[in-house]
């Protein structure tokens, strides 16, 4: 039924359609790049403003928010990874959280601008970029911290589990990327669907949905950052087990 509605909408709902640039034979999604750049500028701008204004005295509300996130991330990293083992996880997770949060929240921009700016996380290109970057860093950290022992965990608890473990490791970045992408894309599709309603009616569900979308955006940013920390924890946690085994 929705198919008919979509079809009848005269191309009202387009999924995965992007205006593209072609550079050196490569296809680049123009709207995603613009949106990402916008999100990046916002995040960097807020961050630099914060760093310039930061004080050890009474903090601004922005600083309090940033500190709350940093504090929480530090706590998570401490309990999952150990700050000393991988101190760079803290700024990474903080950056991921804020960058994804701002990217997701670009969804509040008017639907009519969709062709130019929207949430860039609704494009797999950004989410895959983030997820692969994170996973590669996770494996690099695991190898650097554990050395050869790192590969042992692929055969845990039994050697027969090797294929499953490999699949699990491969699925990590994909699930990480697609979870974020799917949630944000769905939010945009929902708005597109609501936009097919007459304008006199559509404003109410659209407003309500966009508010909910903000919540989803926050949640997904949180999940992405948290999973990043947890993956680092897995990679590094094996090292402790290995060392314990070695000690025995």
């Amino acid at each position: 039924m929705s198919e008919r509605v979509l079809a009848a909408g005269g191309g009202g709902v387009q999924v995965g359609e992007h205006p593209t640039w072609h550079v050196w034979g490569l296809t680049i999604n123009a709207d995603t790049v613009i949106s990402t750049a916008l999100a990046a500028v916002i995040v960097v701008g807020i961050g630099l403003y914060l760093a310039a204004k930061a004080s050890s005295g009474v903090p601004s509300k922005l600083q309090v928010a940033f500190e709350a996130v940093t504090d929480q991330v530090e706590r998570q990293v401490q309990s999952n990874v150990g700050i000393r083992t991988a101190p760079f996880v803290v700024p990474l997770a903080v950056t991921l959280f804020f960058f994804i949060l701002i990217s997701n929240w670009l969804a509040i921009l008017p639907h009519a601008w969709e062709q130019r700016v929207g949430p860039p996380t609704a494009d797999v290109n950004l989410t895959f970029a983030l997820a692969f970057f994170v996973i590669i860093l996770v494996h690099v950290t695991g190898i650097r911290v554990n050395g050869k022992h790192y590969f042992k965990h692929f055969t845990q608890p039994y050697a027969a589990m090797l294929p499953l473990n490999i699949i699990e490791e491969l699925s990590k970045p994909i699930t990480l990327a697609l979870r974020l992408f799917g949630n944000i894309l769905a939010g945009g599709v929902m708005v597109s669907v609501l936009a097919l309603l007459p304008a006199a009616v559509s404003w109410l569900p659209t407003s309500a949905w966009k508010l909910f979308d903000l919540f989803i955006g926050l949640l997904q940013a949180l999940i992405f950052a948290l999973l990043t920390i947890i993956y680092f924890g897995f990679a590094v946690g094996d090292q402790e087990d290995a060392q314990e085994e070695g000690a025995r």
């Binding site: 296809t27 680049i28 990402t36 950004l126 895959f128």
Partner: peptide
């Protein structure tokens, strides 16, 4: 993903 991946990264 297409080449946008690298720009995003």
């Amino acid at each position: 993903p297409n080449a946008t991946f690298f720009v995003e990264l």
